[in-house]
Amino acid sequence: MKVMIRKTATGHSAYVAKKDLEELIVEMENPALWGGKVTLANGWQLELPAMAADTPLPITVEARKL
């Protein structure tokens, strides 16, 4: 699914347009965010693609819901 990742004042957030859902990312498998699992505030887990740590945000990526 397409997910937009952006930086907020409190960390990172994910927006899933198909579900009209925006949630804070509360847990990251990798400190650089990319190439691992993230957990959203509502409990969803997404697998993000591997990208460079300095990838500019906001960005829309293809993520997989676990």
Rank of each mutant, 00 (worst) to 15 (best):
K7E: 08
V16A: 05
R64H: 10
H12A: 05
E29H: 04
L57Q: 01
K7C: 08
G43H: 03
V61K: 01
G36T: 04
I59C: 11
P49W: 04
E47N: 07
N30A: 07
E62I: 15
R6E: 03
M1H: 06
A17D: 10
R64C: 10
G36A: 07
E29G: 05
E23C: 15
L40R: 00
A14I: 15
L46T: 02
N42D: 03
N42H: 02
A9L: 12
E27H: 13
G43L: 02
I25S: 00
T10S: 13
K2D: 10
I59T: 07
A14Q: 02
H12Q: 04
E23P: 00
I5D: 01
K19C: 15
E47Q: 13
E23T: 13
N30I: 05
P56M: 11
K18S: 15
W44Q: 04
V3M: 03
V61Q: 01
Q45E: 12
R64I: 14
T60L: 11
K2M: 14
W34V: 05
L48Q: 00
T60E: 14
N30W: 08
L66W: 09
L57M: 08
M28W: 14
T8Y: 08
K37M: 13
T10Q: 13
H12P: 07
K65Y: 15
N30G: 06
M4N: 09
A41F: 05
I59H: 07
A14T: 04
G11W: 02
R64T: 13
V3P: 01
L46N: 00
K18M: 14
W34N: 05
W34P: 05
M1R: 01
E62T: 14
P31Y: 08
L40D: 00
E29K: 04
R6H: 08
L40N: 02
T39L: 10
A9S: 12
E62V: 14
K2E: 13
A63L: 08
L48K: 00
I5P: 01
E23W: 15
T60Y: 11
A63T: 08
K2S: 12
A32S: 13
V26D: 00
N30S: 09
I25N: 00
A14F: 09
T60D: 06
L24C: 12
R6C: 12
P31W: 08
G36D: 02
L46P: 01
M4T: 15
A41C: 06
E47V: 13
L57F: 12
K18T: 15
G11D: 02
T55S: 06
K65V: 15
D20S: 10
L21S: 08
T8D: 07
E22P: 04
V26Y: 04
D54S: 09
A41P: 03
A63G: 06
M51A: 04
E22R: 07
M51Q: 06
H12L: 14
L33H: 03
I5A: 01
M51L: 12
A52K: 10
L48E: 00
T10K: 13
M51H: 04
L48A: 01
K7Q: 10
I5K: 00
K18W: 14
L33V: 04
T55D: 02
M1D: 05
D20K: 10
N30Y: 11
L57Y: 07
K37S: 10
A9N: 10
T39S: 07
W44R: 00
I59L: 08
A41W: 04
L21N: 07
V16N: 07
T8S: 09
V16L: 14
L46K: 00
P58A: 01
W34Q: 03
G35W: 04
E47K: 09
T60Q: 08
H12N: 05
V26N: 03
A63C: 11
N42L: 04
Y15A: 07
V16C: 14
A14H: 05
L57C: 04
A9F: 09
A9K: 11
A32L: 13
N42S: 07
A52C: 06
S13R: 08
A53F: 11
L33T: 03
E23S: 15
T10A: 12
L40H: 01
M4D: 07
A53N: 11
P56C: 07
E47D: 10
A63E: 03
A9G: 13
T8M: 07
T55K: 04
T8Q: 07
L66K: 06
T55R: 03
T8L: 09
W34A: 02
M4V: 14
K65Q: 13
A52H: 12
A63V: 13
V26K: 03
E62L: 14
L33S: 04
D20E: 11
A53D: 12
T39I: 11
G43S: 02
L57A: 02
K18V: 14
V38W: 03
E22D: 12
V38K: 00
A9T: 11
K2T: 14
K7D: 04
